[in-house]
Design a protein around this nucleic acid. Structure first.
Lengths: 150, 150
DNA sequence: TCCTAATTGAAAAAGATTATCAATAAGGAG
DNA sequence: CTCCTTATTGATAATCTTTTTCAATTAGGA
């Protein structure tokens, strides 16, 4: 299914700005930040507002047509690390983050990806997202309450 | 080695603002953004400039005492995804990103972390960073040139 | 071709981050 | 313990990113 079909299928209109953004992303060899997409569009002679770039990206993200790439700089949250532990699992309910060990588990994957892609890997970013035990309990209680009162 | 020793050992001074930031991070149950650290300090009656929070975090990051946590929102770069492929390896030389498959390799780790932490995992973020083949070549040429001309 | 509602763009607001520079304070020397 | 030097701080301002607002535009069905 083409992205146009996905877009229309989800009830959105196929518009000029959306086509421009998709075309630019399609021709890009590296991830682009919104302002870069905006500038590229201008250089290509397209009329496109920066705000529309933001809105289009948010939509494409929702549709799963694009994904985010995290560089080391930017706006992030900070947590302390223990020696040797550099991976976190973050609760999407309350934000609580705890560390977990297991970088070794990535070794096999790292080696394989290096061979397949030809890239020389020297760092990685791995994070899990989920519900902490407390938020799981809260979610269960919520469901119980709903089933009893609705 | 305590963080104070690490700080001083690296040639930095042990100051009030740095202690406050470390204490707040130490007591935090979730990752904190700079402004949240700043507000917490104010609520605790500490005098601390927001700018110092930024500077302190940058320093702690350099020393490896804190790490970044990436939430799904925020300022990031965007790339297209292929169906089923949601992981990227990004060249730190030129920014070029390509996808790789292998989410299955995380299954065992996911299961183990779920058991160990009690979290219910429903998403993850995995990215590799390294040098693409072209940038590796460029790096090799650079070294050759240096060894010949210096 | 017309109509309606989704979408856009410009401007402004809100937030986040960085640069500047005089005032302050950490920590070694005496 | 006091003084001195210099790293560090905090206030202000500048810069940049992202979101909000709202009137004008336009996609796509009638």
């Amino acid at each position: 299914m083409s992205w146009q079909e996905q877009l229309v299928g989800a009830g959105y209109r196929l518009t000029r700005p959306r086509s421009i953004v998709m075309e630019i992303l399609n021709n890009a060899k590296a991830p682009l930040v919104p302002s870069a997409i905006f500038k590229k569009a201008q250089r290509d002679g397209h009329s496109l507002g920066l705000v529309s770039v933001y809105r289009t990206l948010a939509l494409l993200l929702k549709l799963g047509l694009v994904t985010l790439v995290h560089f080391s700089e930017g706006c992030h949250a900070y947590v302390l690390v223990s020696p040797g532990h550099h991976h976190h699992i973050i609760c999407v309910g309350c934000g609580k983050a705890i560390e977990f060990s297991g970088a070794e588990d990535l070794d096999a994957l790292t080696t394989r990806v290096q061979q397949e892609t030809g890239y020389l890997i020297n760092d990685h970013l791995l994070q899990f997202y989920g519900l902490c035990p407390a938020c799981q309990q809260a979610a269960i209680k919520e469901v119980e309450w709903l089933s009893k009162n609705i």
